[in-house]
Amino acid sequence: MSKQIPVVDYLVLGDSPHLVAHECTSCGARFFDRRNACAGCFGTTFKPVSIATDGEVRAFTIVAFAAPGVAVPFVSAVVDCGGTSVRGNIINTEPDPDHVKLSMKVRLVTTSIGTDDDGTEAIGFGFEPIS
């Protein structure tokens, strides 16, 4: 059976893939990477929280150039997932301004990034339009 690994450690795979963040227990600020103290209130305790998988596109760009191995053009976006901003690509739609719009509703989906020499498949995520 082939193994899978998430593209980043804040992506949780399984039956209902979702993102997790470290939430400051004092002020509720959320961070996808580790912090010694909260950037907002300097609190030092955090708890893991699941991030909503549905969201709304708050900003996007369509990037025409990228490092080798990255398909272009691709759509980079800031998605408001229930009050938490998430960065990700808009996928499963044409990467042009006729198909990608501000305020568009989207949901998180996973996508295969590739398989390494040991047979492990990397799983990434993106957001697709909710039609």
Binding site: I5, P6, V7, V8, D9, Y10, F32, D33, T61, V63, F65, A66, A67, G69, V70, A71, V72, F74, S76, A77, V78, R87, G88, N89, I113, G114, A122, G124, F125
Partner: peptide, 15 residues
Amino acid sequence: YGAVVPTDGRIGTDN
């Protein structure tokens, strides 16, 4: 972020 590949272009853009 415990990334297994460069994230630029795969999780949004850095450019």
